[in-house]
Design a protein around this nucleic acid. Structure first.
Lengths: 129, 129
DNA sequence: CAGACGCAGTCTCTAAGTGAGACCTATATA
DNA sequence: TATATAGGTCTCACTTAGAGACTGCGTCTG
């Protein structure tokens, strides 16, 4: 793809197009992050602590849980509150922005449920070839 | 996370929970695939051929373009039509299911545009620490 | 007529990202 | 004393993604 594309990209950049600063991709990166939306979904039910999230999402590693939470915090979707108990406990919750994300996101999930069978059917049809 | 979690997962699986057969995750995997939704977005404008898509999404490699298109085809979101011209041309277009995905997806993009500034602001605030 | 170019990919090599799980500091419990 | 909880960090191995060379065939350019 780097054929004669390179100078075209240069052109786009000159015109102000930057793939790394594109609103579409910016959100997509979150939804695309595999875990972040699952975490958001958990936090919408109720604010939760680190290990509680780990239990709710059993197949995420601590490493990725930490990283995903940091990403969400960085983008202002999730709030991290440390309570100075012993041992200290950390509660994660949705911010208003994070909360507002849930509306369009749940539409997507509705679509998912409606079309699940179609997709599964298409998939097994394709795999039979 | 594999601490005392393992048997809990076994339990869930016994109850019929399978992370690999969860409708939420199934769609998420698509949206999550980084390129697929961008491709869908391009194909919504108009059916396009392989290299045209490559040009429209300049930072995707041919390798990933092929793979993403195959995934979308497999799930019945995209149709692949080969025209027996010389050289053969291949046109990709949205199926009805693929088309129906665009409604909830565009809601997400609306959200993205509305909240872009917030996110960017939160991000640079966070990074200053 | 030779060489470059477009089509739609595939293949290989390397770089980056992810997952599993050991480890850390501190307190409370058995 | 040993173990469990909390919220993580660190390392190592493995998987995935990206860059770009290569293919085969037909057309366009010099």
């Amino acid at each position: 793809m780097r054929d004669l594309m390179t100078d075209r990209i240069e052109q786009w950049k000159a015109q102000g197009f930057d793939p790394n600063n594109c609103p579409v991709r910016m959100v997509l990166d979150h939804v695309a992050a595999k875990w972040t939306s699952l975490i958001l979904l958990e936090l919408e039910k109720e604010p939760q602590r680190f290990n509680a999230l780990g239990r709710a999402l059993p197949d995420i590693s601590k490493r990725m849980l930490t990283q995903s939470l940091r990403d969400l915090e960085r983008d202002g979707m999730v709030r991290r509150k440390v309570y100075d108990t012993k041992p200290p406990s950390v509660e994660y919750s949705l911010t208003d922005v994070g909360q507002s994300f849930m509306a369009p996101f749940s539409q997507l999930l509705d679509w998912a449920e409606k079309n699940q069978r179609h997709i599964l059917a298409a998939r097994s049809g394709y795999d039979k070839l």
